[in-house]
Design a protein around this nucleic acid. Structure first.
Lengths: 201, 201
DNA sequence: ATAATTTTGTAATGAACACTATAAAACTTT
DNA sequence: AAAGTTTTATAGTGTTCATTACAAAATTAT
């Protein structure tokens, strides 16, 4: 009655690590641009293992998206939530977005969601659902912090939390787009202070 | 000495129309997702004609981008520039963005630039240059209108035109992203008035 | 008319694609 | 140790991919 030991030959790779490697590949190459060869090589497994564990390419893609979403370790969100002062937190969020978008090893990659959506949402079945969920969750997560600040008295009672949360989200998209086009960090950082004011005041 | 008549068999298709058809295909399918078959069928020509007139797929892609950029008929820009009252103009811009992103025949397509950049910029040589130019031009075009309004006295002298222009641009990216995920027009229109205030006040 | 030139359609090229049949390998169960 | 089960690697499957060789077709130049 051992629940951990399954019958048959044990899997020779870590399922989760393989999935994270797949995220990386889709991230840089897009859904169509990522070949099974690219994926298997990055994941360190052969094609039959990929197909038996993750299904086909589309299924792997969806699982990679969910893996990314469930990670919660999106750098800008962490920066935003870990900084106690709300004004500094907003600034840290935007800075992290810019960093995230510009200083990635394999050139500018933007955000996995942004990258994935344009290649696949609408074209590939089921992907838009995942993204809708992700947007709503991110908006809510940002708004929650604003609500907490209102309770603390750091923000006025009539502060429109959800509205400003989605504003932050949209600014993020703008930075990502600019970074993809190759704009440099220093040019994007210029009006940071005023953008913080726009969000909070 | 006839300059219009060239020697040899005349081209049986309109070069510009074919290029616009190519834009449509890249728009909906992305660079990698668009096959030569897709392209030739939409353009109404056979592969050899495509290659002799536009070079290879990458060259066609770049020409399609430039064709799109030189069009200047981007609906939100037109809406923004043709409305005399600046407040209404900003609102019209945002409304047009939302319309543009949500009510396209083949599902939600977003913007050609946004679609094209994520598939190809960074991965495909030369594309990021085209986009950088496009962003700078759009920012400048929006800012120019703000400057005119300052001269007219409709905006304060210290109004940061370029900053607010890029803010508008970035909000646009956010809407496009949301539309791609399948968000509906009415949910995005909710905080439109406050977003106009954010841009102008 | 004939020659020269360019575009066109047909059909093919090799490469890369997503995906899988098969059998050996590695484990648990009996 | 033999049987049963699952994963693995090898080596393919047919399809689609971007691209092009070739010759007929359509025009201008001589």
């Amino acid at each position: 009655m051992n629940t951990t030991k399954r019958v048959g030959r044990p899997r020779g790779f870590n399922c989760d690590e393989a999935l994270m490697a797949a995220v990386e590949v889709f991230w840089t190459k897009g859904y169509e641009g990522a070949s099974i060869k690219d994926l298997t090589e990055a994941m360190g497994i052969k094609a039959p293992s990929l197909y038996s564990t993750f299904g086909d390419k589309l299924n792997l893609y969806k699982q990679a998206i969910e893996r990314y979403l469930s990670n919660d370790a999106c750098a800008p969100m962490v920066a935003f939530e870990s900084e106690p002062d709300i004004r500094k937190a907003v600034r840290a969020f935007l800075e992290a977005v810019i960093d995230y978008a510009t200083q990635n090893e394999s050139g500018t990659r933007g955000c996995f969601l942004s990258s994935c959506v344009s290649t696949s949402a609408g074209e590939v079945e089921g992907v838009d659902e995942l993204l809708k969920k992700a947007i709503a969750e991110t908006d809510a997560r940002l708004a929650k912090r604003f609500e907490l600040e209102k309770e603390k008295g750091a923000l006025p009672d009539k502060f429109p939390s959800l509205e400003r949360a989605s504003l932050m989200f949209d600014l993020r998209q703008g930075y990502i787009f600019r970074a993809r086009a190759g704009l440099k960090k220093n040019t994007m950082t210029l009006d940071l202070d005023r953008r913080v004011s726009i969000i909070l005041d």
